[in-house]
Design a protein around this nucleic acid. Structure first.
Length: 814
RNA sequence: GCCGAAGUGGCGGAAUUGGUAGACGCGGCAGACUCAAAAUCUGCUGAGGGGCAACCCUCGUGCCGGUUCGACUCCGGCCUUCGGCACCA
C-alpha cells in the first residue's frame, strides 16, 4: 500500500528545499536565451485574496513552462505601494501609511510564497521604498530636462466643505462628496503635466508588439487621431484684444453652414466675450457646468444646454455674423475648446440649434436633394450647396478646396487633432512620490539636483480628517533652500500619480538595490524588454499607454533598448463575488489560505485554471474544487500504484504511446495559447486513460514508464509540489522543474482512424469509422452506401455531394 | 452616453480555419464496497417525442432577421452583463 497524498506536508517540504537551493533565482550570467515573464504587481491592500492568485498562478505556470523549454526565465514580483487607500487608512485608523503598507507587504509576501510560485524574491521592489522612489524622482527630472514636464492650470474635484481635493472615486455618482455629501465643484490648480501628446503618433503604432487586437483598438480610439482643419473666425468685440477665434473641424466642407459657435464653459475667452447683460446667466451656467463630470457632459442622451454670451464673430468665408454661445458639450481639452455649430450636418449641433431656435442651413446636399428641409442631420458626404464659390463641389473634394482656400488666406490650415490629452501627474496627496521641484522667489521653478535625491516624505506628517494635504501643511517639508541661490524657497507639495511608479517597476526589478541609476545598464541590456506581460484588461489604456510612453522617452534618453516595453500581452479576467470585484471594503474577500491549508496549493492553482478560459475570469464558486483535489489524489495513486507489466501486446503498447504523445501535443499547444482549462482537461483525460490501461490487466513496461513520467512533466508547471514529490518517489533526479519539456513524436501522435460524419442536407445521419488517409472517392462511396443515409435520400434526387477531407460528407438532395 | 468585450445543459465550461454541439469537471440519479456512514469505484445524465430493444425522430448555443450544402462560429439589427472613460489601482 502507498501512503496518501498529504499536500500540507509536501508543499512546505519542497518550498523550503527550493528556497534553500535558490532553484528559482534567475542567473544574470546564463548562456540560455532569456525570457522576461512579467505579471502585474499587486497593490498593497493587505488582503491577498483568491482574486490575486487568479492572475498570478497561471502566470507562474506559463513561466515554469518556458523554463522547462530551455529559457532562462525571469519571473519577478513586487508591490505597488503608494496610493490613496493607505492615506485613507491613516486618517481613519491613525496608522501611518508607511506602517500600514509595510505590514500589508509582509503579510502578502508570505501568502504569495504559499502559492509555490517561481518568483525570484531577490528582485522584489516596492514603489514606496526611498531606494525606489529616489529613481522615480530621477526620471521626473529627466522628463523635465527634456521639456516633457510642464505646469499648467487644470481642474481638480474640490469639496468646499472638506476644503480638499477629491479623487474621482471619492465623488458619488450624484456629484456629491462621499464623506460629507456636499456638491463637489471643480477648481483650477497649477499642476504638472507630461507631454505624452508629443508621442501620440508613435503610440498609435503597435506594429512591433503582439497584443490582443481589442487592446490595440482601445488605445487607438483613446488616442483618437483625426485630421482636420483649424479655421479662424473674425472677432471684433470692444475691449477684447484677440482679433479671431479658432475652431478645429474635421468637416471644413460644412463651414458655410455654421450658424453658431460653442465655447467650452471653462474657456478663458468666455469671460471676455460675455456682454454685461448676459453676465449673470453665463456665470451661473459656467458654475453649473463645473459640477458635471465629463461622462455626464458628453452623454448624447443628455439634453443639450447652453447660454448666449451676447457677442458675435464673423465667418470669414461667408461673411455671416455668428452668435457665440457657451455650452458644456464643448470640451476645453479637445481641439481649441471651441466648436463650430453646423446644425444641418451634425447631430449634437442640430439638437442644440433646435432647442435654442438657431438657424439651420443645409450646405451638403444628399443625393437627389430638391431643396427640402432635412428632418435629420445629414452627416454623410454629398454636394456642397449654399457655399458661395464652392457650390457644386463634392464634399470630399470640398474638404481640400476649403482647406486650401483657408490656408491661402492665412485663416488657418490643416492640423491633426488628438483626443489624447497630456498626462496630468500631480496629486494633492501625501502617500505618493514627491515631485522634486523647488519654487524660489528669485530663481523661479528649480529642479532638485540629482545628488540631493530622494526628496523624502516626512515621517511625522499629520493625517487629519480635514483633508488638508499633510505635505502642504508640514512646515519642515515645505520650507527649504533654493538649490541654485541658497535663498529661502518652497517645495512642491504635490506627489506623482501612482501610474508613474508602475511605469518602470519592471525595470527596477532587474537591480532593485542598484544605487548609481534606476537600473544597472548591463542588466537592462540583458533582460529588457519584457517578453510576456500578463494583467487585467482594466489596464488596457491608461497604464499600458503611459508605460509605453515612458519607455519611449527612456529610449530617447539612451537608457533602454528597443521601442516597446512589452512585446506580448495577455489580459486575464477577474474573479468576482456576487458580481462584484473582490475587495476589503466590500467585505467579499475570499482568501486562498484555508483552501491551501486543507487541499494544498496545487489544488488551488489548478482549480483557478480549470474554472474557464483565463481571459474570462468568473464568479467564485468552490463547489468544483474537490473535483480537482480528487484528480490529484488519483494521479498520486496512479503513479505510485504502478501497473502489471507483462502480457501486453504490441497494439496496446502502441495505443498507450499514441495517447501519451497526443497529450504532449495538446498540452503544449494549450500552454502556448494560455488555455489552461483545456490543458488540464487533456491531462485528466490522459490520467483517465492510464487508469483504464492499468485496469486492462497488462501494460507494456516501457510505454507505461514513458506515460507516467510524461504525465508528471506535463503537470509540473501546474502542480509543482505534487509532481516534484512523485518525481522523487519514482527515483528520478531532482528537480523535475529542471527537466526539459517533453516533445511529441508526430508519427505516434497522429490519428490512424477518424470519424467520418455523413450528413444529408446538413443534418448528421451517420458516423463512420474510417482510415485517416481515406480519399474523397472512397469516402463518398461509403457515405452513399450507408443504410441510414439511404433512408434519407430514398426517392430524392442527389444534387451534389460535398466532401471535407478528414471531416465529413454532405449529401445535398431535393 | 462613448470605446472595448462577453452570452452554449441544473452549474463552470469544450468545439484550433464555416463542418459530429455539450470534451473535461461539478452537481444529480442508480449501482458496487460497508453493519451503517464517509471515502473510493462503475454506469447514466440537454429538452421533447417514438420504440420491447439495439435505436430512431424533432428541437436546441441571449433575441429577431440574413448569407451558406452546412452557422455557437460570418453579416445586419436588438437585449443583458462586464471592463475603461483620464485623481481607485
Amino acid at each position: 500500500m502507498t501512503d496518501s497524498y498529504n499536500p500540507s506536508e509536501i508543499d512546505k517540504k519542497w518550498q523550503r528545499k527550493w528556497e534553500e537551493d535558490g532553484l528559482y533565482e534567475s542567473p544574470d550570467d546564463d548562456p540560455r536565451p532569456k525570457w522576461y515573464f512579467l505579471t502585474m504587481l499587486p497593490y498593497t491592500s493587505g488582503d491577498l485574496h483568491i482574486g490575486h492568485w487568479y492572475p498570478m498562478a497561471p502566470s507562474d505556470v506559463a513561466a515554469r513552462y518556458k523554463r522547462m523549454q530551455g529559457y532562462n526565465v525571469l519571473f519577478p514580483m513586487g508591490f505597488d505601494a503608494f496610493g490613496l487607500p493607505a492615506e485613507n487608512a491613516a486618517i481613519k485608523q491613525q496608522i501611518h501609511p508607511y506602517k500600514w503598507t509595510m505590514d500589508n507587504i509582509q503579510r502578502m509576501r508570505q501568502q504569495l510564497k504559499s502559492m509555490g510560485a517561481m518568483f525570484d524574491w531577490r528582485r522584489e521592489a516596492s514603489s514606496c521604498d526611498p531606494e525606489y522612489y529616489r529613481w522615480t524622482q530621477w526620471w521626473f527630472l529627466k522628463f523635465y530636462e527634456k521639456g516633457l514636464a510642464y505646469r499648467a492650470k487644470a481642474p481638480a474635484n474640490w469639496c468646499p466643505s472638506c476644503q480638499t481635493v477629491l479623487a474621482n472615486e471619492q465623488v458619488l455618482p450624484s456629484g456629491d462628496c462621499e464623506r460629507c455629501g456636499t456638491p463637489v465643484s471643480r477648481r483650477d490648480l497649477e499642476q504638472w503635466f507630461f507631454r505624452i501628446t508629443n508621442y501620440a503618433d508613435e503610440l498609435l503604432d503597435h506594429s512591433q508588439i503582439q497584443w490582443p487586437e481589442r487592446v490595440v483598438t482601445m488605445q487607438k480610439n483613446w488616442i483618437g487621431r483625426s485630421e482636420g482643419v483649424e479655421i479662424a473666425f473674425g472677432l471684433d468685440v470692444p475691449g477684447v484684444e484677440e482679433k479671431d477665434i479658432r475652431v478645429f473641424t474635421t468637416r471644413p466642407d460644412t463651414v458655410y453652414g455654421v450658424t453658431f459657435m460653442v465655447l467650452a464653459p471653462e474657456h478663458p475667452l468666455v469671460e471676455k466675450l460675455t456682454t454685461p447683460d448676459r453676465r449673470a446667466e453665463v456665470e451661473a451656467y459656467v458654475e453649473q457646468a463645473r459640477r458635471l463630470s465629463e461622462i455626464q457632459r458628453l452623454s448624447t442622451e443628455k439634453e443639450k444646454t447652453g447660454v448666449f454670451t451676447g457677442s458675435y464673430c464673423k465667418n470669414l468665408l461667408s461673411g455671416q455674423e455668428v452668435a457665440l454661445w457657451v455650452a458644456d458639450y464643448a470640451l476645453l481639452t479637445y481641439g481649441t475648446g471651441i466648436v463650430m455649430g453646423v446644425p444641418a450636418h451634425d447631430h449634437r449641433d442640430l439638437d442644440f440649434a433646435k432647442k435654442y431656435g438657431l438657424p439651420i442651413i443645409t450646405v451638403i446636399a444628399p443625393p437627389g436633394w430638391q431643396g427640402e428641409e432635412l428632418t435629420e442631420a445629414y452627416v454623410e458626404q454629398g454636394t456642397m450647396v449654399n457655399s458661395g464659390p464652392f457650390d457644386g463641389t463634392p464634399s470630399d473634394q470640398g474638404y481640400h478646396a476649403v482647406a486650401d482656400y483657408v490656408e491661402s488666406k492665412g485663416w488657418g490650415g490643416r492640423k491633426v487633432g488628438y483626443r489624447l490629452r497630456d498626462w496630468l501627474i500631480s496629486r494633492q496627496r501625501y502617500w505618493g512620490c514627491p515631485i522634486p521641484i523647488v519654487y524660489c522667489d528669485r530663481c523661479g521653478t528649480v529642479p532638485v539636483p540629482e545628488e540631493d535625491l530622494p526628496v523624502l516624505l516626512p515621517e511625522d506628517a499629520e493625517f487629519k480628517p480635514t483633508g488638508e494635504s499633510p505635505l502642504a501643511s508640514h512646515q519642515g517639508f515645505v520650507n527649504t533652500t533654493c538649490p541654485r541661490c541658497q535663498g529661502p524657497a518652497r517645495r512642491e507639495t504635490d506627489t506623482m500619480d501612482t501610474f508613474m511608479d508602475s511605469n518602470w517597476y519592471f525595470i527596477r526589478y532587474l537591480s532593485p538595490h542598484y544605487d548609481e541609476g534606476p537600473v544597472d545598464p548591463a542588466l537592462a541590456k540583458k533582460w529588457l524588454p519584457v517578453d510576456q506581460y500578463t494583467g487585467g484588461a482594466e489596464h488596457a489604456v491608461m497604464h499600458l499607454l503611459y508605460a509605453r510612453f515612458f519607455w519611449k522617452v527612456a529610449r530617447d534618453l539612451g537608457m533602454l533598448p528597443g521601442d516597446e516595453p512589452f512585446l506580448r500581452l495577455f489580459n486575464q479576467g477577474h474573479i468576482a463575488v456576487e458580481r462584484a470585484k473582490m475587495s476589503k471594503s466590500r467585505g467579499n474577500v475570499i482568501t486562498p489560505d484555508e483552501y491551501v491549508d486543507r487541499l494544498g496549493a496545487d489544488t488551488v492553482r489548478c482549480y483557478l485554471m480549470f474554472m474557464g478560459p483565463w481571459e474570462h475570469g468568473g464568479e467564485w464558486d468552490d463547489s468544483g474544487i474537490f473535483g480537482i483535489h480528487r484528480w490529484l489524489n488519483r494521479v498520486w495513486g496512479l503513479i505510485l500504484g504502478g501497473a502489471p507489466t507483462d502480457g501486453a501486446d504490441a497494439e496496446a503498447a502502441h495505443q498507450l504511446r499514441h495517447v501519451t504523445h497526443k497529450t504532449i501535443r495538446r498540452v503544449t499547444e494549450d500552454m502556448e495559447r494560455f488555455r489552461f482549462n483545456t490543458m488540464l482537461a487533456a491531462l485528466m483525460e490522459f490520467s483517465n486513460s492510464l487508469a483504464k490501461a492499468r485496469e486492462s490487466g497488462a501494460v507494456d513496461a516501457g510505454a507505461w514508464q514513458e506515460a507516467v513520467e510524461t504525465l508528471l512533466l506535463l503537470m509540473a508547471p501546474s502542480a509543482p509540489h505534487l509532481s516534484e514529490e512523485l518525481w522523487a518517489r519514482l527515483g528520478k533526479p531532482y528537480s523535475i522543474h529542471q527537466q526539459p519539456w517533453p516533445k511529441w513524436d508526430e508519427e505516434l501522435a497522429k490519428e490512424e482512424e477518424i470519424t467520418l460524419v455523413v450528413q444529408v442536407n446538413g443534418k448528421v445521419r451517420d458516423r463512420l469509422q474510417v482510415p485517416a488517409d481515406i480519399d474523397e472517392e472512397r469516402a463518398k462511396e461509403l457515405a452513399l452506401a450507408s443504410q441510414r443515409v439511404q433512408a434519407h435520400i430514398e426517392g430524392k434526387q442527389i444534387q451534389r455531394v460535398i466532401y471535407v477531407p478528414g471531416k465529413l460528407v454532405n449529401v445535398v438532395v431535393r
